[in-house]
Simulated scan of single mutants.
Amino acid sequence: MTHLGIQHLDRFHGLPVHTPSSGATPPAADSVAWRLECAYDEDVDFPALWEQFLETVDTTRVRALLIGPWWRQDYTPFAPVMELIVAHADRFPALRGLFLADVVGEECEVSWLRMCDVTPVLEALPLLEEFAVRGCGQEGLGLRPLRHAALTSLRFESGGLPGSLVRSVAASELPALERLDLWFGSSWYGGDATVEDIRPLLSGGVFPRLRHLGLQNSEIQDEIAVAVGSAPVVAQLETLALSMGTLSDAGGEALVNGQPLSHLATLDLRHHYLTEPVLDRVRAACAPAVVEAGEAEDDYADPDDEDDEPERYVAVSE
């Protein structure tokens, strides 16, 4: 199974990512994106780490913040961490980028990330421009409809995205939003979003400034491709991502036979199950747009079970 996108960022919100270490001289507060993580070999829990950060860094100048692993040994829910961020939001007047649960596989599987309703963070930080969250729906990942005038980029990287969250995104007033990425994931991990949940997003009237849309990592990638084929929002996009899911020839044909995609700069289809002839037709239909695809994934079947039906998987779930 290909794992696309689950990696530590070198840069976030246009800044190099910096993880502070004990005894090191910190850089200028506004020159880096700060990544806070609990180290297994240090006897400091996240509340203590947070207090150290507030005491040693001029948080009034911090522009970007990433929260990495917030536990040392026993995995704990995210809600107490979020409460700390909300309680001290006034200490971060310059904060414009926030990534919650910047955690990769060797630290914790995405399906284990016990997230919560993240609405209070957005409400506490009305000037935030970029917001990203990683986690799964089965442990409480949620969002309530809200208005946020400054947000330009919203990203949910999930191994199981709740349909309720997708509906809340569509019901929110985000007049500045330019980039939206939704990873749907697997039903095994709380992913129950449907095409009906995304139809308001596809209408084109919800986010007038939207230029990038990612509907990715889905078990219903073919159904999404069919819906995208006639979606009004596509006309306003510059980039479209339908990658990381189970896109097959049925979805590829829908893209070929749907509305023109040649105005796009890129169409991302990486991690797909398209045959080469259909992929060639997609490329031809989308030209001069660049179609990013790479090698097709292989269907999986148990070699020791003659009756085992081949299966297809999203790129990121566990």
Rank of each mutant, 00 (worst) to 15 (best):
H3E: 14
A250V: 13
V206I: 13
T239C: 09
G294P: 11
E196V: 01
P303Q: 13
F131R: 00
E109A: 13
R155V: 12
M244L: 13
R179E: 14
E292F: 01
V110D: 06
T2E: 15
G23K: 04
H8W: 10
R61F: 11
S230R: 11
P126M: 04
L66E: 09
V195E: 00
A24I: 00
R72G: 08
G191T: 11
V206G: 02
T76W: 00
R312D: 08
L182Q: 11
L247W: 07
L36A: 08
G205K: 05
L154V: 06
G160L: 04
L180G: 10
R35C: 07
F99V: 07
D45E: 13
G251D: 06
E219R: 04
D299Y: 15
L127T: 15
E253A: 04
D308G: 08
G160S: 07
D299A: 05
S203G: 15
A150W: 01
R167K: 12
P208D: 04
E292V: 13
E157Y: 14
Y40L: 08
R209M: 05
H8K: 04
D304W: 05
D308E: 10
L267A: 12
G204N: 05
H271G: 03
I198D: 00
V44R: 13
Q221T: 14
L279G: 03
P126K: 01
V32E: 01
A94E: 15
D192G: 02
T56R: 13
H3C: 02
L100H: 05
L174K: 02
L215I: 12
S186D: 10
T2H: 14
A89D: 10
R114S: 11
D58G: 02
P26K: 00
M82T: 02
S22G: 00
A225P: 07
G159S: 09
T239D: 15
S248N: 07
S218L: 07
A284L: 11
E276F: 09
L274E: 11
S153A: 15
V233W: 01
I67Y: 08
A284K: 09
E157G: 08
V195F: 02
R209G: 08
I220Y: 06
F78T: 09
E107D: 14
D102S: 14
R11Q: 12
L9A: 14
G105K: 02
D74C: 03
H148C: 10
R179F: 13
Q236P: 01
I220H: 10
L122M: 15
P277G: 07
T152L: 04
G97K: 05
G137H: 11
V81A: 01
Q73R: 10
Q73V: 15
V57D: 03
L4R: 07
A89M: 08
D302N: 15
F99I: 02
